[in-house]
Design a protein around this nucleic acid. Structure first.
Length: 587
RNA sequence: GCGCCCGUAGCUCAGUUGGAUAGAGCAACUGACUUCUAAUCAGUAGGUCGCGGGUUCGAAUCCUGCCGGGCGUGCCA
């Protein structure tokens, strides 16, 4: 029997008991998990029934529990306070869970999304500087949400909207053409994005001394917009340097995209939508000549003087602004890929922008506007305050990865006392562990919270971390490897021999996995996955510590514990995969 | 001023569609490696859930008023 069937059976038993006792079907029953293994495997709270039948929930629980008879699945039913707790025959539950997980390589979760299409836009960097820690937070969130939705049966289209034009880009271009003397990433042996970033910093240094540089930058932007061949050529060359650098960083971090949009192609979009809005009468022309959209007071409040809030869509010279372009891009995305949902992974400082954007799409009567969602995440702060790329107070993505990789490598070498590991193996593990530490650290808290990142204290490998979860997996893998040489494959597991506290705890967290994935996918909360995979890893480590697997007696118990270990390994590996973290066979 | 977000142990955070004794990790202290990997495990200690009211059989969770912090707040992106 599958876990889903077991749950259905419990709810049916509840229903039948309600009919017998109260003569009515129960409403709104939810299957939950008791807080402690001693209470049982599943629980149903009787609070909705208390309302429905106007009785004390504890009394209801009592009479229902007395009504449900044990059978081949249910071992016993007890009322504890307002809860009806179900204890199942452990041989059945362990057997079903282990078999189901191993057969399907995890639980079956892919019916939730029903094939709905979701576009996830994330990262969207500016091509004038390298990626920093804030981008990593964005990227792991974007990849994580994509993985999660895919695992839940959605078709996901991952998009990167590259901000490849504008004054900021011209700044590095101007600095390079003035002072670089033809240096290139190759000639200086510098990663392309870092190379360009250095010229961006140089510009900002020089601009402090020579304010007239600002005018030169504006002039360069005008030349770019008029299509001046030399300017375009310079722009293409420097962007190419940045892209080659980015690609390396993406590869290391496991960021992938199905589609790239470039702002140089999209920045003129949206003007036609402004015309539609004017025609509909939802936008209008201000006295200054700019085109504006009034925002409904009930949702946006009013200005200080009590007047209605507005957003500008076209400047009084007729040129478009950021939100105009985003209107156009939103429609372009829909026309290109027909997503049912369009998720924007963008920092929290743009909350108001997206609130406006989605409202404007709604005012334009796009029926897909309701599917737009801003997945907003907080800033990453340093001990000295906000990260500012102009002032160089950023944690560079490549530097951080290298630093964490190095710390992991030190740790690996410290425990490899016999020098048995190859250089390649050490490098592979060190990178995987370092990345696990970073990604888990960034995903384990709710996205809307700001993160204070202290480079000195760095990110830990102990406790509630990615490496801890990897370690639990490696222990499982190690046991499974060793079991292969011992001719255990033919032995039939006796699941009735399982049932100690640690085994029950492990079973408990494994059973909950599909529900956790479903909830996490519904709310886009990777932190739930972090919490849960950590709970499983904890249960594995506790079990590992107290109960031998390979040395257990009799062999049928060995087989049963092996099945449990194998199932745990599958769920940990799958959970880590959702987080973009590699499960290592050895650590 | 207004809008959104946040405030839980010394620190970082879970828990928020109201429900079982508010949970982890780090740091501190004590203990466990001849044993399937000690990146581990067991234990001790640590809480007016920012403050005050309210709703409820029941509030960290909902409502309300304060206090503190963050991010925004029409022709930047």
């Amino acid at each position: 029997m599958s876990i889903a069937n077991i749950k259905t059976e419990i709810l049916s038993a509840m229903e039948a008991a309600c009919k017998t006792v109260f003569g009515q079907r129960p409403q709104n029953l939810n299957l939950n998990y008791p807080p402690k293994v001693e209470f049982g495997d599943f629980a149903v709270g009787c609070f909705p029934l208390a309302k429905q039948f106007r009785q004390n929930p504890a009394n209801i629980a009592q009479s229902i529990a007395a009504e449900i008879q044990p059978n081949e699945s249910i071992q016993n039913v007890t009322a504890v306070g307002p809860y009806v707790n179900f204890k199942l025959h452990s041989s059945l539950l362990f057997g079903d869970v282990c078999t189901e997980i191993r057969k399907k390589k995890a639980f079956d979760n892919n019916n939730l999304g029903n094939g709905r299409r979701v576009m996830v836009e994330y990262l969207s960097p500016n091509t004038n500087k390298p990626l920093h820690l804030g981008h990593i937070r964005n990227g792991v969130l974007g990849m994580g949400v994509s993985n999660l939705l895919e695992a839940a049966g959605h078709t996901v289209i991952k998009a990167n909207l590259v901000n490849d034009r504008g004054v900021h880009i011209c700044k590095s271009m101007l600095a390079w053409s003035k002072w670089a003397n033809g240096d290139t990433p190759e000639s200086t042996d510098t990663k392309g994005d870092h190379f360009v970033g250095e010229w961006y910093v140089r510009y900002n240094q020089e601009a402090k001394k020579s304010p007239q540089l600002q005018e030169e930058v504006q002039a360069m932007l005008r030349k770019w917009e008029s299509g001046d061949p030399a300017t375009i050529k310079l722009w293409e060359m420097m962007n190419q340097w940045v892209y080659s650098g980015y690609e390396e960083t993406y590869r290391r971090l496991g960021f992938a995209f199905d589609v790239f949009y470039y702002e140089s192609n999209t920045y003129t979009l949206g003007k036609d939508l402004v015309q539609i809005g004017l025609h509909k009468g939802v936008f209008n022309e201000a006295a200054s000549g700019a085109v504006i959209a009034p925002l409904p007071t009930d949702e946006f409040g009013a200005e200080k003087d009590g007047s209605q809030k507005v957003v500008t869509l076209l400047r009084n010279d007729g040129t478009s602004v950021y939100i105009t372009q985003d209107l156009g891009t939103a429609k372009l995305k829909f026309d290109d890929h027909q997503p049912d949902r369009s998720i924007y992974v963008v920092a929290t400082e743009q909350n108001y922008h997206f609130q406006c954007l989605f409202k404007l799409l709604n005012m334009l009567d796009f029926e897909w506007a309701d599917g737009c969602y801003h997945l907003s995440y907080g800033m990453v702060n340093l001990p000295e305050g906000k990260m500012k790329s102009r002032e160089g107070t950023v944690v560079d993505a490549d530097d951080l990865i290298e630093e964490m990789r190095q710390l992991a490598e030190d740790e690996i070498r410290r425990r490899d006392t016999e020098n048995t590991l190859s250089h390649e193996e050490i490098q592979k593990r060190a990178l995987a562990i370092g990345l696990a530490a970073i990604k888990f650290y960034l995903l384990r808290t709710r996205p809307e919270l700001d993160i204070n990142f202290d480079p000195k204290e760095s990110i830990s490998f102990d406790g509630f971390t990615g490496p801890y979860c990897q370690y639990a997996y490696a222990r499982c893998a190690s046991i499974l490897r060793k079991s292969k040489n011992r001719g255990l494959a033919s032995i039939e597991p006796d699941y009735s021999l399982l049932g100690n506290t640690e085994e029950l705890e492990l079973l408990r967290v494994l059973i909950q996995f599909p529900d956790v994935v479903a909830e996490a996918a519904g709310e886009f909360t990777l932190a739930r996955i972090c919490n849960h995979v950590f709970a499983i890893a904890q249960a594995v480590n506790q079990f590992y510590h107290r109960h031998p697997v390979l040395a257990a007696e009799p062999a049928t118990l060995v087989a049963a514990r092996l099945a449990l270990v194998s199932a745990s390994a599958v769920v940990i590996r799958n959970s880590l995969a959702l987080l973009g973290i590699e499960a290592l066979e050895e650590m």
